[in-house]
């Protein structure tokens, strides 16, 4: 299985958009660094993220959410993980695609 990481803001780069378009069913998307802005509830890209959650698992890195003050504004159903969870996801999936 494939782990996709996105580390750019969806409002500045199309990384998350491309990732959502190309991630296969059953894969996992992990939002890190400025990528966690893609987890924001009610944003212009939230509907697209929510729609993708039927076929892919979307996670966001907790410390990056907290740093940006948005830990309590995350779309329902997005799984918040810590650094250990990040490592576990990297191990569980045999390939990692980083959308830079």
């Amino acid at each position: 299985m494939m782990l996709h990481t996105v580390n750019k803001s969806p409002f500045e780069k199309n990384s998350l958009n491309s990732c959502l378009n190309c991630a296969a069913e059953g894969s996992t998307i992990l939002l890190i660094e400025d990528g966690v802005y893609g987890a924001l509830k009610g944003s212009s890209i939230a509907d697209k993220v929510q729609a993708a959650m039927g076929k892919v698992t979307v996670c966001a890195l907790g410390p990056d959410l907290a740093a940006r003050g948005i830990a309590d504004k995350v779309i329902d159903g997005i799984k918040v993980v810590d650094y250990a969870g990040f490592v576990a996801l990297s191990v569980e999936n045999d390939k990692v695609q980083a959308w830079l």
């Binding site: 803001s9 409002f11 500045e12 400025d34 802005y37 907790g62 410390p63 990056d64 907290a66 740093a67 940006r68 003050g69 948005i70 830990a71 309590d72």
Partner: peptide, 14 residues
Amino acid sequence: DGVFQIAKGQDTKG
């Protein structure tokens, strides 16, 4: 994205 600079409740310990 500059509006995020003044977002409330930022906690960078992690």
